[in-house]
Simulated assay, not measured.
Amino acid sequence: MTAHTYSAIPAIELKSPSVPAHPLRPVFVTVIALKVAVSVFLLATVSLAPPVAAEGTYMSVASID
Rank of each mutant, 00 (worst) to 15 (best):
P51A: 04
S63D: 07
V46C: 00
A11W: 06
A53E: 06
L42S: 01
V61A: 12
I32R: 11
A11K: 12
K15I: 15
H4T: 13
P51R: 01
S16P: 12
L34E: 01
L42E: 06
A62L: 10
P20S: 08
A8G: 08
P10L: 02
E55H: 03
P50H: 06
M1G: 14
A33Q: 00
F28Q: 14
T5Q: 13
V29F: 09
E55V: 02
A54K: 02
S63A: 08
S7Y: 02
A8S: 15
S7G: 10
M1W: 09
A62D: 07
K35M: 14
D65T: 03
S47V: 08
S7I: 11
V27A: 10
H22D: 06
A33R: 09
P50T: 02
V36R: 06
A3D: 13
A62N: 00
I32W: 03
S16M: 13
A53Y: 10
I32F: 11
L42Q: 05
V52T: 11
E55D: 10
V31G: 04
A3K: 14
S39M: 00
R25P: 00
S7T: 14
L42Y: 07
P17A: 10
P20E: 04
V36E: 04
K35H: 05
L14K: 06
V46W: 02
T2M: 12
P50N: 09
V36Q: 04
